[in-house]
Simulated scan of single mutants.
Amino acid sequence: MISKNIHTNSINLHYIDTETEGPVIILMHGLTANSHAFDGLLAEGLGKKWRVISVDLRGRGLSDKPTEGYTMKDHAEDILGLMDGLGIEKCIVGGHSFGALLTFYMAFHHAERLEKLLLLDAAARLHPQTKEMLGPALSRIGQTYPSFETYLEKVKAGAYMTYWEDTMLSYYQADVKLNNDGSVTQRSTPENMTEAILKGSFGEPWLDYIKAVEQPAILLNGTMNYALDAPLLPKEFALETVSLMKNCQYKEVWGNHQTMLYGQGAKDIVAGIESFLAN
Rank of each mutant, 00 (worst) to 15 (best):
T189D: 03
L119M: 04
W164A: 06
L178I: 09
L134F: 00
Y145D: 11
P128Q: 09
E153M: 14
L178M: 11
L138W: 07
T194C: 03
A124G: 15
T185Y: 02
L134T: 07
D181H: 00
E195C: 10
Y145S: 11
P190H: 04
A174P: 12
Y171P: 09
G158E: 15
G135I: 08
L120F: 01
L138N: 08
L178E: 09
R140H: 10
A174W: 09
M168A: 01
G182R: 02
T189P: 03
N179D: 07
G158N: 13
A123F: 06
D181W: 01
L152Y: 12
D121S: 07
L178F: 07
P136G: 09
T185W: 00
L118D: 00
A122W: 02
T167I: 10
A122N: 09
H127R: 05
L178Q: 11
I141G: 07
V184R: 03
D166P: 13
D175E: 03
T185E: 01
L178W: 06
Y160Q: 09
K156N: 14
Y171M: 13
V155W: 08
M133Q: 06
L138A: 09
Y163C: 01
T150Q: 14
P190Y: 07
Q173T: 10
Q173G: 08
L117D: 08
L126A: 08
N192E: 01
A122R: 06
A137P: 11
E191C: 07
M168P: 05
F148R: 14
V176T: 12
F148G: 12
T130M: 15
M133E: 01
F148H: 14
L152F: 15
T150P: 11
A137Y: 13
K154L: 15
P190E: 01
Q186F: 12
T150V: 13
P128C: 04
G182D: 01
A174G: 15
M161I: 06
P136E: 04
G135S: 02
A159Y: 12
V176N: 09
Y151F: 12
E195K: 10
T162P: 10
V184P: 03
D166I: 11
M161T: 02
A123E: 01
E191W: 07
N180S: 15
Y160P: 04
N192Y: 02
M161V: 03
L126M: 10
T194K: 02
Y171K: 13
P136Q: 10
Y160W: 10
E153T: 14
L120A: 03
L118R: 02
N192M: 00
T189I: 06
S183D: 00
M161P: 04
N192D: 06
S147N: 03
G142M: 08
L152A: 13
S139D: 07
K131H: 06
E153K: 15
E165A: 04
Q173L: 11
H127E: 07
S139N: 05
G182L: 00
M168Y: 04
A174V: 08
Q186M: 13
K177L: 11
R140G: 04
L118K: 05
A123W: 07
R187M: 05
W164H: 04
E132D: 08
G142P: 01
E149Q: 11
G135N: 00
S183M: 05
T130D: 13
L126S: 02
Q129C: 01
A159S: 14
